[in-house]
């Protein structure tokens, strides 16, 4: 296996997390489509922020929806649920 991973003598016992889970960029698993925010339509209601199962949606400085592509898996829930049609799934 990869020599960059710790050996059994180095690893903390019991399978505890030895680095933050945010180190794993789950956005790499995204297949096919990614959500893109149409800022002119977004009212900043934050419905997408609440509904995103990966906490990959936030509100930017302008109060508009913002996608963190590091963790977005492209499920499309945000686009489907946005009451204003402000999120579009775009082929990658």
């Amino acid at each position: 296996m990869s020599s960059s991973l710790p050996g059994w003598k180095e690893l903390p016992m019991g399978g505890v997390a030895f680095r933050p889970s945010t180190d794993i960029k789950t956005g790499e698993w995204r297949l096919g489509f990614r959500p893109v925010v149409k800022e002119e339509k977004c009212v900043g209601c934050a419905m997408c922020v609440v509904l995103c199962p990966d906490m990959a949606m936030g509100l930017g400085e302008e109060g508009k929806a913002q996608v963190n592509y590091d963790y977005c898996k492209g499920c499309g829930i945000c686009a489907r649920e946005c009451p204003y049609g402000a999120i579009e799934m775009v082929p990658e």
């Binding site: 296996m1 990869s2 991973l5 059994w8 690893l11 399978g15 505890v16 997390a17 889970s21």
Partner: peptide, 22 residues
């Protein structure tokens, strides 16, 4: 501390080796 995490083919074996050592 996070317990009960996920370990695939890249880490699982090392944890079993630790148990044997214990």
């Amino acid at each position: 501390l996070s317990m009960g995490t996920f370990a695939m083919y890249d880490l699982y074996f090392e944890y079993k080796r630790q148990q044997e050592e214990a």
